[in-house]
Structure formats: structure tokens, C-alpha cells
Design a binder for these strands. Structure first.
Length: 499
RNA sequence: GGCGCUGUGGCCGAGUGGCUAGGCAGAGGUCUGCAAAACCUUUUACAGCGGUUCGAAUCCGCUCAGCGCCUCCA
């Protein structure tokens, strides 16, 4: 029995509002699409949280044996600054302000995005398509929608006819909106006269004479609407129906609702089996966002230069911090919480290190411990399989950490377990920490010279202790501590760690 | 206004109709020359008011507080 058969995955589907057992459309293969960033400025920590959450989902699916094609787009055109039809293209605007080519802006922030993800140990995706690379396909889909009577052209722009679509399909089923209410609420803008209804959205926009980003189309020169790219690219690389579509909660409406309408409208098929949405990162209870001015940039966090932080925190500490909450809950970002997370992270990684150097020594098997250990191993899978509950998984990992420490001190002998169970415990413990949760040891110094110097100092301290010169031995210990090098004595000898 | 979510111990944060979440912090102990680390033990809880139930923090209703989406946002 394979892992994925032994431990079925249940996940919360936004579409049904319920937890459902995960069954991919094609056995063994999983197609997953996540809405990526609009690359017109630096990604902030809130953005990172979403990509981190889906990184763990991606990792776990692979860990239990699925072959996953993970597609995450780069939005490099069509995402407008304010109202869906009135604003300026975000990238075009930035390019204008900085007097650069739009593609220079795109490249700059795409590079930054990749750098940031790498620092957080977020795996690269299988395919990372961009909107401008799929203009042809987008034009094709617009044409299909026009042909089916679900879109109409006005003055070189094309809009999706939501009320017409809603006659045969349910527009609003993902977000729980009703079309009548949508018609009533919200703002009415003066120059919306091109659209038949205010809830219609742009599939293709005519480019004004000064607009730099423009492509020829059957309706004149223009550029694609924002919602279209995800539908087109997910269809192209994952098929008309695929397994998982993810993104931040704030994309449910209108973005994902529009995606469904475009897919169903053009292909007649339901595009996504499971919709997964990651909740927001908050600061003092409020959503972190650029417009509110409360967003943190990764580099401000690492360096500790943000005014709300007392010190810097490493990417792995932040990763650990985020994994302590469930992806579907809001998570509040604070100095105190990060300090606590930093200590917890260190404890876990110390346990990880301990686990790498534990010899198995045959002994009488303790049946109770053997059973409990197997339950802990199961617990890792059951918790991850329960809607990717990383918080509970971490709790189990901490229980195993205690065991590892007990093995090290000899409180519990490794041989109280069968060799088989012991080996599996160690391997799952390590696998969940590194492969599933994607935590890794911080770049410890691999500097042989420094290590050698510390060894010399530790020997000197040992000599001083034997000579009962505690003044000297404590001075060595304290001075090293001030440099961030902590000496740890135990019966087996002295070890050190570098903060 | 519409739709939806949240309210857990000093802090963060899981979870659930009856059985220890976990991390951080606090207390006591083991170890140590003293510490640190590690280990063991341990205190503090489910916003308020009603209801359902043998039993609710967990289900239902109301109240209060806060948040999200309905404009761009991961």
C-alpha cells in the first residue's frame, strides 16, 4: 500500500464549503494552479504567506507519492490600478513613473520574487507562465466567448456578459454572491457606459493612444483583462478540468468567480475540482496590504529595520512561525510572536540535529513505547492529511523532539523500540521537517578555520576547569556567548552552536 | 447595506460534544564548580447571556467586540 492510499487527504473546498476527501481526476497525477503575483512592486510578507502555504501543500502531495504539475503564473499585463475598467495598468504605470520599459519592471520584480521565495525555501514550480506570453491564446478564448454569445464588443473592448451567463449557470457560486445583489451594491462610475451591466468584466481592453503595452487583435490594438490569463494558462497546461486551484482569500471575488465563468462559458466544463484559499496575514488584526501601508518587506524583516521589530528574523524562523498556524486562519504578525517562534524553531532544529547522530542499540522492546511511537508516526500523516494542518503536525514533531532528546540523554534507550520502528521514526521525523515543511538549518558556519578556533578555546576552557580556574573558564564561556557562540556541556562532552 | 469569518490560559496558536494540542514565558526538580543546554514535573483557558444534551469551550439563538470581501490586493 502506498502512502497516499494509506493516508487519504481531506481538504476544505471553498466551492462546497466542506471538507472533502481528495481524489485526483487522474490517479497519481495532480494538477495544481496558484495565482501568482502581479510583478509591479516588491512582494511583501502577506504575499509570501500564500506561496508558502501552497509550497507545503505541493511538498506534501509529492511526499505521499503524487506526481504534481504545479503551475503558478506571473501577471505582467492587464492588472489595472483601481476599478477593473477605469484604472491604469499597474505595470504600465510603474514603467511610466520610472521611465523604464514595462518588461524591465516585470523582469526586475520577477527576479526579486524568485529571490525572496528561494530565501524562504519555497520550491520552484513546474511551469511559471506569464500573461504576455499567452496573448494569442487569450485572444482565442475571447473569440470563443463572443461566438457563444457570452461576450460582446464595444469600441474595441470586449466584456463578459455576466447576466447572460447567469441564466444557464450560477455566477457567484464560489463566493456566495447573488447577481441581483451585486447589481445593486457597489459604486457606480460615470464612464461605465461601455458595459451593459456594471458587473460585466473586461476580457479585452482597447489600448489608448499612449498605452505602451498593446497587441493587435480582431478588435483593434489592446491588451487582455486580468481574469483571463489564469483561465487560459491553467487550461493550456493543466487541461479544461484540473484538481486544485489556490490563491489568497481576497481573490475569491471577483477574480476566481470570473475564472469559473470564463471556463464554463468557453469549454462548458467545470474547471476546478478543489478550490483552496489561504487566509490573510494581519498586523494588529488588520490585513497586511500595500494600500494600508502596514506591509513588511522580506528584507526589512531579515534586517530588523522595520519600526515594529526589535530585531531581525531569519527566513526559516518566519517560515516556522507561519507553519504554526493553519493556512485557512488569519495569522497576526508581531514582534513577540516571532521571538517565541525563533526559540521554538531552534529547539526543533536541535532535535533534528540530535536525530542525525543516534545509534541504534538493541535492547528489550517496550511494547507501550513501540505502540505510542507508531501512533506518532501516523499522527504526522493524519494531521497533514487533515486539510494540511501544519500546526498539529508541528505539535507531533515536538513530541518526537522530546523523544529524540531522551534518546540522546539515555533516558530512553533506542532499543526500547524495534530497529524497524526506530528507523522509521527517525526518517519520518527528518522527512517531515525538511521535505514536507521545508525547514532547513540556518546557514551554520561551515568555516573550518572558525570551527578549529572554537575547538581550541573549548580545550583551553576544559583545561582551566580541571585546574579549577573557574574565572578563566567562565570568561571563555561568557565571551563566546557574547559573540553568539553558545557552549553546551553534557556528560558526553561539550558542544557548541552559533546563533 | 449584502455575504462571510473570528473571539481559546501571561503571549502566539491548534482543536474538539465527555479523554494532555504544541511553541514561548512562569514555577519546582535532575544534571553542573556555577550556569547554559538537555531531561522530568507543573500553574493559568475556551468573549457574555440563554437554550439543546446525561454532559458543551465544542451544537443552536441572542448580545458585545474585531476582521475580511463586495474597488486593486496573496
Amino acid at each position: 500500500m502506498t502512502l497516499k492510499e494509506k493516508y487519504p487527504i481531506n481538504l476544505h473546498n471553498t466551492l462546497s464549503g466542506k471538507k472533502e476527501q481528495f481524489e485526483p481526476i487522474h490517479e497519481e497525477y495532480v494538477g495544481m494552479y496558484v495565482c501568482g503575483p502581479t510583478v509591479y512592486s516588491d512582494v511583501h510578507l502577506g504575499n509570501v504567506r500564500t506561496f508558502l502555504n501552497f509550497d507545503v501543500i505541493y511538498r506534501y502531495l509529492m511526499y505521499v507519492g503524487y506526481k504534481v504539475r504545479y503551475v503558478r503564473n506571473i501577471t505582467d499585463v492587464g492588472h489595472l490600478e483601481s476599478d477593473a475598467d477605469e484604472g491604469e495598468d499597474k505595470i504600465a504605470k510603474k514603467a511610466r513613473l520610472q521611465q523604464l520599459e514595462p518588461m524591465e519592471i516585470v523582469q526586475q520584480y520577477t527576479n526579486d520574487f524568485h529571490d525572496v521565495l528561494k530565501q524562504f525555501n519555497i520550491l520552484p514550480v513546474s511551469i511559471e507562465p506569464s500573461a504576455t506570453g499567452h496573448i494569442v491564446e487569450q485572444i482565442e478564448m475571447v473569440q470563443q466567448l463572443i461566438d457563444k454569445g457570452l461576450a460582446y464588443e464595444v469600441n474595441g473592448s470586449v466584456y463578459f456578459d455576466v447576466s447572460k451567463y447567469d441564466k444557464d449557470h450560477n455566477y457567484g457560486k464560489l463566493s456566495g454572491r447573488k447577481i441581483e445583489e451585486l447589481m445593486e451594491s457597489g459604486r457606480t462610475l460615470d464612464s461605465q457606459d461601455e458595459k451593459r451591466n456594471k458587473i460585466d468584466f473586461a476580457l479585452w481592453k482597447k489600448a489608448s493612444p499612449t498605452h505602451i503595452m498593446r497587441w493587435p487583435s480582431p478588435w483593434g490594438e489592446g491588451f487582455p483583462g486580468w481574469h483571463l490569463e489564469c483561465t487560459v494558462m491553467s487550461t493550456k497546461y493543466l487541461g479544461e478540468s484540473f484538481d486544485i486551484h489556490g490563491g489568497g482569500m481576497d481573490l475569491i471575488f471577483p477574480h476566481h468567480e470570473c475564472e469559473i465563468a470564463q471556463s464554463v462559458g468557453s469549454t462548458g466544463k467545470e474547471p476546478v475540482k478543489y478550490w483552496l484559499h489561504s487566509n490573510m496575514l494581519t498586523v494588529n488584526g488588520q490585513k497586511m496590504s500595500k494600500s494600508l501601508g502596514n506591509s513588511f518587506l522580506p528584507r526589512e524583516l531579515f534586517a530588523g529595520t522595520h519600526q515594529l521589530l526589535q530585531k531581525g528574523f531569519s527566513p526559516m524562523v518566519v517560515r516556522f512561525f507561519m507553519l504554526q498556524s493553519h493556512y485557512s486562519s488569519t495569522l497576526d504578525f508581531s514582534n513577540e510572536a516571532l521571538i517565541a517562534a525563533e526559540k521554538g524553531y531552534k529547539r526543533l532544529m536541535e532535535g533534528y540535529k540530535v536525530s542525525k547522530n543516534l545509534p541504534f542499540e538493541q535492547n528489550d522492546v517496550d511494547g507501550e513505547l513501540e505502540t505510542k511511537t507508531k501512533e506518532l508516526i501516523d499522527g504526522l500523516f493524519l494531521n497533514m492529511g487533515d486539510d494540511f494542518n501544519t500546526a498539529k503536525t508541528l505539535a507531533v514533531l515536538f513530541e518526537i523532539t522530546t523523544m529524540m532528546n531522551n534518546f540522546k540523554t539515555g533516558n530512553i534507550k533506542t532499543g526500547y523500540l524495534t530497529q524497524e520502528t526506530f528507523a522509521e521514526l527517525v526518517s519520518r521525523y527528518q522527512g517531515f521537517i525538511t521535505e514536507v515543511l521545508g525547514l532547513r538549518e540556518e546557514a551554520e558556519t561551515s568555516n573550518d578555520l572558525l570551527n578549529g578556533v572554537i575547538e581550541v578555546l573549548m580545550k583551553l576552557r576544559q583545561d582551566a576547569k580541571e585546574a579549577r580556574d573557574y574565572q578563566l573558564s567562565d570568561k571563555i564561556r561568557d565571551d563566546l556567548k557574547n559573540l553568539g557562540i553558545v557552549l553546551k556541556d553534557s556528560k558526553e562532552g561539550t558542544e557548541y552552536s552559533i546563533a
